[in-house]
Computed example of a mutant assay.
Amino acid sequence: MYRHTKQVVSAGIPAEQAKKAIIMLHGRGASASGIISLKDHLDLQDFAIVGPQATEHSWYPYSFMAPVENNQPALDSALEVISDTVDDLKQQGIAQENIYFLGFSQGACLTLEYTTRNAGKYGGIIAFTGGLIGEKLVNENYQGNFDNTPVLITTGDPDPHVPVSRVNESVDVLKILNADVTLKIYKGRPHTITGEELEVANAILKR
């Protein structure tokens, strides 16, 4: 079983010069540079953009709905990489409330899992097709206060990897922690990111 080493691809404004930053997390089989290419469709002109790269192009080996122990140590290691990336941005002078997160699929699940385990005031959280991780959700894992952080969660119905029931469960957990959640469910949409989703994401990035 693998662990991740921190490898981060950067784009946009250098973090030392930026006021805002976004951490972008790629999906299974994809790459940091691939998810960062979404910047051409997003309102990120004044952002530092960072994309951690998963070892073997996968943040954890099995489904996000598998028992958590089956995805270890990769899952904990992935969460550590995100935590280290957040710490780096803070050390470069970016306040937590100006740090944004965006992920697709496996990266969206990881985005939600990290931020909900570390709920606080962030700039915004964008999860394109994802939900909280585990066979069953363990509410004790999730604590803090999002303080009305805007969160966008989107998914297709049905989606081959992410059941709508888990998306709804995840929304409930985030709302209890005071996230300002927008949920968009698209009937019959394939496992992808649509132009409409990017527009809704831009509304959060412009806030």
Score class of each variant (00 low, 15 high):
residue 186 Y to W: 00
residue 138 V to M: 13
residue 58 S to K: 13
residue 20 K to M: 03
residue 88 D to C: 05
residue 57 H to V: 06
residue 37 S to E: 06
residue 90 K to T: 15
residue 112 L to G: 13
residue 80 E to I: 09
residue 4 H to N: 00
residue 145 N to K: 11
residue 77 S to L: 11
residue 13 I to R: 11
residue 196 E to D: 15
residue 168 N to K: 15
residue 16 E to V: 10
residue 61 P to D: 02
residue 54 A to T: 14
residue 186 Y to D: 02
residue 103 G to M: 05
residue 48 A to H: 12
residue 175 K to M: 06
residue 195 G to C: 06
residue 149 T to E: 08
residue 134 G to H: 03
residue 121 K to S: 12
residue 175 K to C: 03
residue 181 V to K: 07
residue 45 Q to I: 07
residue 153 I to A: 07
residue 74 A to Q: 13
residue 57 H to G: 05
residue 107 G to F: 05
residue 129 T to S: 15
residue 157 D to I: 02
residue 32 A to L: 00
residue 193 I to T: 14
residue 61 P to Y: 04
residue 147 D to E: 15
residue 93 G to E: 13
residue 8 V to Y: 04
residue 21 A to V: 02
residue 130 G to F: 07
residue 188 G to N: 13
residue 143 Q to R: 13
residue 7 Q to A: 02
residue 76 D to I: 06
residue 85 T to R: 08
residue 128 F to N: 07
residue 126 I to Y: 08
residue 206 K to A: 13
residue 93 G to A: 11
residue 92 Q to R: 13
residue 176 I to Y: 00
residue 128 F to H: 13
residue 6 K to Q: 04
residue 80 E to R: 15
residue 129 T to K: 10
residue 150 P to G: 04
residue 142 Y to D: 07
residue 60 Y to Q: 10
residue 46 D to K: 02
residue 178 N to T: 03
residue 192 T to D: 14
residue 95 A to L: 11
residue 137 L to T: 09
residue 121 K to I: 05
residue 172 D to V: 04
residue 69 E to A: 14
residue 152 L to R: 07
residue 199 E to H: 06
residue 75 L to N: 05
residue 148 N to D: 13
residue 106 Q to F: 09
residue 141 N to L: 12
residue 35 I to T: 00
residue 149 T to L: 05
residue 79 L to M: 09
residue 186 Y to I: 03
residue 170 S to R: 03
residue 108 A to Y: 13
residue 193 I to K: 15
residue 91 Q to H: 12
residue 89 L to G: 09
residue 190 P to D: 10
residue 8 V to K: 03
residue 35 I to F: 01
residue 20 K to I: 02
residue 75 L to E: 02
residue 187 K to R: 07
residue 166 R to F: 00
residue 85 T to F: 04
residue 1 M to Q: 08
residue 192 T to C: 12
residue 122 Y to S: 04
residue 125 I to Y: 09
residue 98 N to Q: 14
residue 34 G to C: 00
residue 185 I to L: 14
residue 55 T to F: 09
residue 192 T to Y: 10
residue 3 R to M: 09
residue 199 E to G: 09
residue 125 I to G: 08
residue 22 I to C: 06
residue 144 G to S: 08
residue 78 A to W: 08
residue 28 R to H: 06
residue 25 L to H: 00
residue 204 I to C: 08
residue 141 N to G: 00
residue 30 A to Q: 11
residue 6 K to E: 05
residue 169 E to D: 14
residue 42 L to G: 07
residue 188 G to P: 00
residue 192 T to M: 13
residue 36 I to N: 02
residue 66 A to C: 06
residue 139 N to C: 00
